[in-house]
Amino acid sequence: MTDALAPAIALLASGRCRREVLAEVLAGFGYRLVFIDGPERLTPAQLGSIDTDLWLLDVSDECEAIDWLLDQSDVPVLLGVGDTPEADSEDYPRWKRQLYNKLLPLIGAAPGGEAPTMAPASTPNAPACVWVLAASLGGPAAVKAFLDHLPASLPVAFVYAQHIDATFEAQLPQIVGRHNEWRIINCVPGVGLAPGEVLIAPIERSMQFGGDRQVQMRDAPWPGPYQPAIESVIDEVMRGFAPACGAIIFSGMGEDGVAACGRLRQSGMEVWTQTAESAACGVMPQAVQDAGHSSRQGTPEQLASAMRDWLEQEWAVAH
């Protein structure tokens, strides 16, 4: 039986079968389901009367309920959980793990629940390469535009290092993942990277990749004045995945990451930058370009197109 003190989830999903599958999985995690329905005909007053710790939205179309919750909800809103694989497929345990990883930083674990095994991604599911998406001021909008224009079916995964207050860390998956198919996950120990995933670099704790390429969290903070330290994130990804890695520097203030971008380029790996004209703050990408480390420049949309071409042509030919 679900613990009465377990975090509460209100589920708003299209399709009865979809709701039943999600409700069963969430209950297995130990969470309380306090509301289950479709988005049709629900008024803001009805939504506001529901006492919950989190809204989980899995709907196919935009509607008034979604807009109201995203703008007015006092509790976290998790939008989208990805396509649910068949229960007997190899992808099903990974899908459950990804869903749990999204819930954990938002509402915590449920007492008495069963957490899915944090197994590393199997070799066939490993990404061809891992790139760092680095940003500061104005970064979420730029990174979202990049991901919105890039198919999640490509053989690549990303580590997203965003200078941001730690109180907003849990919201980044919703901010940059809305309207695209990328699986955006907050960082927890033991998680591995698979194609189509974006791992949020933690703010208050540093991380590294172990020999099995799984995330290892450190108790120590990131070195230097920035949290997370883009410099260190790039170095960790390079240490864990080189030569199958690269970096894109988006909108931001400061020069965090410039030296690490130089190390990437010296090792023959790609470094791309958002054009200063298209950035809310062009200081950070311009600093990388002025240092001579940027091998390609463009708007987020142009960089997405270049990434697709690079993966399908240059990377495929070279590897």
Rank of each mutant, 00 (worst) to 15 (best):
E62G: 15
D3M: 15
L54D: 02
D53A: 12
G292W: 08
P225V: 14
P116H: 11
I9N: 06
E231A: 11
P124A: 03
L26I: 13
G139F: 07
C281K: 07
A259R: 08
M284H: 09
V237P: 09
G252C: 04
V59S: 12
E236W: 00
G177R: 12
N186G: 13
I203H: 05
A45K: 14
V215R: 07
W182Q: 03
A259Q: 08
S60H: 15
R41F: 10
P173N: 11
E64D: 15
A304T: 05
A13Q: 06
V21R: 02
D235L: 09
S295H: 12
Q289G: 05
M253H: 03
D51M: 13
D212C: 06
Y226T: 04
G80P: 08
Y160K: 02
A170P: 05
G268Y: 09
E90I: 08
V198Y: 12
I36F: 05
S251W: 01
G15V: 02
G240L: 02
E197R: 04
S136D: 03
E204L: 09
A109G: 10
I164K: 00
D309T: 14
S295M: 14
E20I: 06
D74M: 09
D71I: 00
P76Q: 12
F250N: 02
D37P: 07
S251H: 02
H163L: 10
M207D: 07
A152R: 03
S14G: 08
A128T: 11
P202R: 02
I50N: 10
G196N: 04
A291N: 10
V176T: 07
A65G: 12
N101P: 00
G298T: 02
L22S: 05
A128V: 12
S295W: 11
L54K: 15
V159S: 02
R265Q: 12
K144F: 01
S251M: 02
C281Q: 07
A152W: 13
G257W: 03
E197T: 01
F158D: 03
P221H: 13
P116T: 03
G192P: 09
A170G: 06
M307T: 09
A291F: 05
P120W: 11
A260V: 01
E20Y: 14
P140G: 00
V258D: 06
A27I: 06
E314P: 04
R18E: 08
L103M: 04
G82S: 10
V191G: 01
G298H: 07
E62T: 15
R239V: 11
R218D: 14
F146W: 06
N101H: 04
V130L: 05
V143C: 03
D37G: 12
D3P: 11
